[in-house]
C-alpha cells in the first residue's frame, strides 16, 4: 500500500519534470505562430514570421554556414578520429598515457577557455603570418579539435568489443593491410562510424561558445545569428528559426529511437 503511494508520487513528479523540461521549448514553438509581435500575448495564428525568414538573406547564409561547418568538420574528424581509435586499440598494451591525456583534454577543458585559447592563437598567427584569418576555416579547425576525441573513443570501444580472433582470421584471409582495412575493418566498424559521424554533426550544430569566439564577421552560424538577434532585442523571427531547429532535433530523436529498436530485434 505504502509502496504504491510512493510509486504514484514518483509518477506525478516525473510528469512535472517533463513539463519543466519541455515548457521553454513549447513556448518558443507556440509564439512562433503568434500573429502579434509579442512574447506575452498570443493573439492569433499566423505564418508571418516564417515568411519573413525566407526573405532574410542573413538567416539563409547563417544556415548555410552551419551546414558547411558541421559537415566538413565531421568528415575531417571522422577520418582523423577513426585512425586514432584504431591506433589506440592496436597499441593498447603499450604505455599510451600521454595520448589518453591528449584525447581527454578537449573534453574536460571548459568551452569558454577552449574558445578563447583558439581565438587568441588564431588572431596572433594571423597577425604574424597572414594565414588563418578568423572565419569558416578557423571554425572548422576548432570544431574538428573537439570532435576528434568523441570519434576516437567510439571507434576504440567498438574495436575493444570485437573478438580478437577476428583479426587473426582477417590476416589469413587478406594479404595486404589495405585489403584488410577495406574489406574487414571498415565494414565491421560501420555502425560505430555512423554514430560517430552523427554525434560529431550534433556536437557541431549544438555548439555556440567555441563557434562564437572563432567566427569571423562573415561566418556567423545559426546560433550566432540568434544570439545577436536576442542581444539586439527579442524579435518573433527568432521563435520561428528556433522552432525549425527544435523540429530538426525532434526528427533526429525519432530516428534514433527507431534505430535503437531495430538494433534490439
Amino acid at each position: 500500500m505504502k509502496k504504491r503511494t510512493l510509486q504514484r508520487g514518483l509518477g506525478v513528479f516525473w510528469w512535472l519534470t517533463l513539463v519543466f523540461l519541455y515548457l521553454p521549448l513549447v513556448v518558443v514553438m507556440v509564439f512562433s505562430f503568434n500573429s502579434a509581435n509579442s512574447a506575452a500575448h498570443f493573439t492569433g495564428i499566423s505564418l508571418r514570421w516564417y515568411r519573413r525568414l525566407l526573405g532574410n538573406e542573413e538567416i539563409l547564409s547563417a544556415f548555410a554556414n552551419s551546414m558547411v561547418l558541421a559537415i566538413t568538420s565531421s568528415v575531417i574528424a571522422l577520418v582523423i578520429g577513426c585512425l586514432i581509435g584504431y591506433g589506440m586499440y592496436r597499441h593498447r598494451h603499450r604505455k599510451l598515457g600521454w595520448l589518453i591525456v591528449l584525447i581527454y583534454l578537449p573534453i574536460v577543458l571548459p568551452d569558454i577557455v577552449f574558445g578563447i585559447s583558439e581565438m587568441t592563437f588564431f588572431v596572433q598567427i594571423h597577425r604574424l603570418t597572414g594565414i588563418l584569418q578568423p572565419g569558416i576555416e578557423t571554425m572548422i579547425i576548432a570544431h574538428v579539435t573537439f570532435q576528434i576525441p568523441f570519434v576516437a573513443l567510439i571507434v576504440y570501444s567498438r574495436f575493444v568489443g570485437l573478438d580478437p580472433s577476428l583479426f587473426e582470421a582477417a590476416k589469413d584471409l587478406y594479404a595486404s593491410p589495405w585489403q584488410r582495412a577495406l574489406h574487414f575493418m571498415l565494414p565491421t566498424i560501420k555502425p560505430a562510424l555512423l554514430s560517430a559521424f552523427f554525434l560529431s554533426f550534433t556536437l557541431s550544430i549544438d555548439d555556440f561558445v567555441i563557434s562564437f569566439f572563432t567566427a569571423g564577421p562573415e561566418s556567423a552560424t545559426l546560433p550566432i545569428y540568434i544570439w545577436g538577434a536576442i542581444k539586439k532585442g527579442v524579435s518573433p523571427e527568432i521563435n520561428a528559426i528556433a522552432t525549425l531547429m527544435i523540429g530538426a532535433v525532434a526528427i533526429a530523436a525519432v530516428l534514433s529511437l527507431i534505430f535503437s529498436y531495430r538494433r534490439q530485434r
Binding site: L21, L25, A40, P223, V234, A252, A253
Partner: peptide
C-alpha cells in the same frame, strides 16, 4: 529507453535556444 530519450532530447537543442525559451517564460 523512450523515457531516457525524452529526458535527454531537450539538451540536444541549442543552448542559446533553450535559454531564449526561459527568457520568454520569465519576461515581464
Amino acid at each position: 529507453p523512450i523515457m531516457l530519450l525524452v529526458v535527454v532530447v531537450p539538451s540536444w537543442t541549442n543552448q542559446v535556444i533553450r535559454t531564449f525559451g526561459w527568457m520568454n517564460l520569465l519576461a515581464p
